[in-house]
Design a protein around this nucleic acid. Structure first.
Lengths: 214, 214
DNA sequence: GAATTAATCAACAACGTTGTTGATTAGATG
DNA sequence: CATCTAATCAACAACGTTGTTGATTAATTC
């Protein structure tokens, strides 16, 4: 490597947007390769920034990782709470999550790593909202908000990442409509025809804790 | 590091179980840290084997990774097909998946990385079985097998990893019963009370493709 | 029991990543 | 304009991982 004749090519200084560029690249990388796959080198490279600059903004790898994590927590609440009617809320949610695969991936990682991380405030408020809903006239009786919440969130997350295999924008929005239709259908009517499954109906009629007792 | 006086401590030779130990450690590691988090060094260390030995059994990191992948594909079919009644099948599935978190994690990675990997044969047969079911008297009308399959599989997978935070064995089996109850309830009755959501019922009555047309 | 095979390991070189340091200078402040 | 702060970068050392090679020897075969 010969010493370059040209003066060092300094970039225009704008620490705020530099930091944002680094964070953005980090999110992207975590989304692509999972949290362990993110390296400072690659992040800096993608952000078009010297590796040392990244260390100026984030003390070390761990701090960058938690910064990604925090950014995520911030936007999560926004997504779960809304005053739109349910049907539109579902569509908005699905569209957002398909349009932001890095977000879906982060969310899944978040769900899988709660023991290590801090407790998640926005998740609690989401479950609280489900509890209110479960008591309302619009809900089926006997709902378990905590577990239903897991189902309602995780299924679209995993699906959305899968759906992003679609190449064209058209294919993607078609897939959104298909999934939206199926999940609404399921929410309204379930999957099994109760008349054909009397034993299961009887089993579910009992509370969960008594199921396997005796 | 001084040269050791003792003769080199050779381990009893048993290539088959050595290979199995390496594969097992690899699975464990992929489960814990995701596919990018698996290093040959750590795998060898956990398997109690010299790193060079690992290279004797697997040409390189990639080959070990696909070996893990293949092991997974093999056991997948077994899990999805069964002649048990539905209710028990659900319980067995949930118990297995909670008892084998490394499997759940691998499965999720698999679902998220289909574009890179080879197409998944066992998934196709699973969807085919769902198609047959969808036409049967036991099913609700209008089911979309492909999308329903995603929901039915991904939700328990993500839940199971979350459920493994439970410390005691008792807590875990309690959680299994709760989730089992909720998912059966949902399969039978859905989530929303159709009478309270006439617009959504009307929306779902139309086929998915016509939803947003006009 | 001698010769062969191959399973196991230690040591090596090449490479990538990490975190640190010191030099350079853009932009802010006086 | 002179000074100061801190944003940016290049270079460095320490470390871990990768894949290779050659030595050692447990099993197997003849």
């Amino acid at each position: 490597m010969e010493p370059s004749q040209q003066p060092r090519p300094f970039r225009r200084r704008d620490p705020l947007s530099t930091r944002e560029a680094i964070l953005c690249a980090a999110r992207e990388l975590v989304a692509e390769r999972g949290p362990e796959g993110m390296t400072i080198s690659e992040v800096a490279h993608r952000a078009g920034v010297n590796r040392g600059t990244a260390y100026q903004h984030f003390r070390n790898r761990g701090e960058l990782a938690t910064a990604v994590h925090d950014w995520f927590g911030g936007t999560l609440a926004m997504l779960l709470s809304s005053d739109l009617p349910v049907s539109e809320r579902i569509d908005r949610f699905l569209e957002f999550i398909v349009g932001h695969p890095e977000y879906a991936r982060l969310w899944i990682d978040e769900m899988l790593s709660i023991p290590n991380g801090r407790p998640n405030e926005s998740w609690k408020t989401f479950v609280a909202a489900l509890e209110v809903f479960a008591e309302s006239i619009g809900a089926q009786p006997g709902i378990d908000p905590e577990r239903l919440g897991r189902i309602l969130v995780s299924a679209p997350l995993v699906w959305s990442l899968w759906a992003n295999r679609a190449v064209t924008e058209e294919d993607r929005s078609l897939e959104v409509r298909h999934f939206s239709h199926e999940i609404k259908r399921m929410l309204l009517f379930g999957v099994l025809n109760p008349e054909a499954w009397p034993e299961m109906v009887a089993e579910v009629a009992k509370p969960a804790l008594a199921d396997k007792a005796q």
